[in-house]
Design a binder for these strands. Structure first.
Length: 432
DNA sequence: CACTGCCTCGACACATGG
DNA sequence: CCATGTGTCGAGGCAGTG
């Protein structure tokens, strides 16, 4: 019936996934980065010409589809005679929404909890579901991912963590999922895991209202990305581990988290977050130790990370100090060692730095002039923990083009060195 | 049955041109 | 300023797998 859709379907199947493929409109030659964009174009521009109009007279595809609501598909019309009509017999206790399966209800719970345990290692954006993060990585960071050297999946390096990755909390998926371990089928994903694994982050702080909402620290570690606690948490622990970053960096990382504030984050959430920025206490490792040692388990990500770290030449080439730190981090949350190995002193805490979330920053020099500093292409994007922690002086405002954007994940670029063109508008809004 | 991931749609934000 | 086009994300449906 919908020739265009069939066409699209076949085209999608032919297209390699996980890459930023283009969707070409054979009618007008237009290209789209997303399937949705292409489909919308088809519906809007070629539906009439292609004979898409529904036989029933629906003016648009969407309207046509809506006409089928509560009606079995034509192909199943006959079968429906013998198959009882499905009903949404599982309802959400908090909103009375109904679903076809219980797992859908559980997954739906995230809507109420507001938890966003899946953090993008590249832009610090958070997602409530793993598949959302996966999709985000594929869509938004596909190109960056391709620069990453594939992580040998068959190279078992790290000792699998005994702790089940996500099992503790079923109703509310633990942040652990961030390890992306199960998603590591592509270079990009491999990179993600690397990001997660380098350093454990301070996690749940007692009384923070995030019992299991541990931001598996590993993620932010190598990337220097702050693993933000869910909005509910009024005391982000990420400030426990505060790398010396330019004042603007933190706002940026936080900002990324709220880039879709209007829809993704309730106003209150944003407000509370801003409050955190202003009231965040100086990094305090002690708090981290005491609070994290019993809670969550950043270690959970260890397995995935270990694998990557072990198989990734880039990671192997890192400083031994880092390696040892990582190892220690995998077993406990004591961040003392973590900070101890830092080659530089942490900058004095400043409210302007916001919650000390770890923020990844690319050293202007290394990222722009020596992408090959490390043995792998990944180096240019994931130069290693040390490179992410830039001495304050490194963040000197630079003119546009001061660094090569094509080789860097824009999101990771230090705001200080980022030009207005390097970041989406909503990112820029946070750079003030 | 639970977990995972893909597909799809709706909503929103942003960019651009009139 | 507004309309339009496009990209992205939240969320639900559902199939595959163990």
């Amino acid at each position: 019936m919908f020739h265009q859709q069939d066409h699209l379907k076949s085209q999608l199947q032919d297209s390699p996934p996980a890459s930023r493929q283009l969707f070409h409109c054979h009618e007008c030659g237009k290209q789209y980065n997303t399937q949705l964009g292409y489909r919308r174009h088809l519906v809007a521009a070629h539906s009439a010409a292609a004979g898409l109009p529904c036989p029933e007279g629906a003016p648009s595809l969407l309207e046509h589809l809506s006409s089928h609501i509560d009606r079995p598909p034509p192909s199943e019309a006959n079968a429906s005679a013998t198959v009882p009509v499905r009903e949404r017999k599982y309802s959400c206790e908090r909103c009375d929404r109904r679903f076809y399966t219980r797992k859908d209800v559980r997954r739906h719970a995230v809507v109420h909890t507001g938890r966003r345990d899946f953090l993008c290692p590249r832009c610090a954006q958070r997602f409530g579901r793993r598949d959302h993060l996966t999709r985000h990585l594929k869509k938004s960071h596909a190109q960056e991912s391709r620069l990453m050297p594939p992580c040998a999946p068959s190279t078992p390096v790290a000792t699998p963590s005994p702790a089940p990755p996500q099992g503790s909390v079923k109703e509310e998926p633990s942040p652990v999922a961030c390890d992306m371990g199960s998603v590591s089928k592509e270079p990009m994903e491999t990179f993600s895991r690397d990001m997660y694994n380098s350093y454990p982050m301070a996690n749940a702080v007692p009384g923070m209202g995030h019992p299991h909402g541990l931001m598996q620290g590993s993620l932010s570690s190598s990337m220097g990305v702050a693993r933000h606690m869910p909005p509910q948490s009024s005391h982000p622990h990420h400030h426990h581990l505060q790398p010396p970053v330019a004042p603007q960096q933190q706002p940026y990382s936080n900002m990324a988290r709220y880039q879709h504030g209007s829809t993704s984050y309730p106003r209150a959430d944003v407000d509370s977050f801003l409050l955190d920025l202003q009231s965040a206490p100086p990094p305090h490792l002690g708090a981290v130790n005491s609070s994290t040692s019993t809670s969550a388990s950043p270690q959970r990500e260890v397995p995935g990370e270990g694998v990557c770290a072990g198989s990734d030449p880039h990671l192997l080439s890192r400083s031994p100090a880092i390696t040892s730190t990582e190892l220690s981090c995998t077993t406990n949350m004591d961040l003392g060692p973590l900070l101890g190995f830092l080659p530089f002193s942490l900058p004095p805490y400043s409210p302007h730095m916001g919650m000390g979330g770890l923020v990844m920053s690319y050293p202007p020099a290394t990222t722009t002039t020596s992408p090959s500093s490390s043995s792998t292409g990944l180096s240019s994007q994931a130069p290693g923990p040390f490179t992410f922690f830039q001495p304050p002086q490194a963040h000197v405002p630079q003119g546009p083009g001061a660094h090569n954007h094509s080789q860097l994940p824009q999101a990771y670029s230090s705001p200080a060195m980022s030009t207005s063109s390097a970041l989406p508008h909503y990112y820029q809004a946070f750079q003030q």
